[in-house]
């Protein structure tokens, strides 16, 4: 369950990272269209919100939230390290979308 939540959060941060700010250009060679960016951002936030759900299955809400916060920290760390040193790895998640990118 923790793993599922971790993956959800990781994907969420990954998408958020692709769509926000100045990072998009370093990850993707082509810029995103406005509507696609908005869609991906929404998906990113949905994934992040969804990652809370597996954490609440086993523990009550108080402890679940703390665990979730720790999980977000962990997944964000992974994304930031990848972005700094291997940005192209982050493009993997949107690769299926390539036909629509331009």
């Amino acid at each position: 369950m923790t793993l599922l939540a971790f993956i959800l959060a990781l994907f969420g941060f990954n998408l958020l990272c692709i769509t926000t700010g100045r990072n998009a250009t370093s990850i993707l060679s082509t810029p995103l269209s406005q509507s696609l960016r908005r869609l991906l951002t929404t998906c990113a936030w949905l994934l992040l919100a969804l990652s809370l759900w597996p954490m609440l299955l086993k523990t009550d809400i108080a402890i679940g939230l703390v665990n979730w916060a720790m999980l977000l920290t962990g997944s964000a760390t992974v994304v930031i390290i990848l972005l700094s040193y291997r940005p192209h790895y982050l493009a993997w998640l949107v690769r299926p979308l390539r036909p629509w990118l331009s």
């Binding site: 941060f13 958020l16 990272c17 926000t20 700010g21 100045r22 990072n23 964000a76 994304v79 930031i80 972005l83 700094s84 040193y85």
Partner: peptide
Amino acid sequence: RNIFKDFFSFRP
């Protein structure tokens, strides 16, 4: 300032 915009930026 830009807590979300700069969220992922680390420029070594």
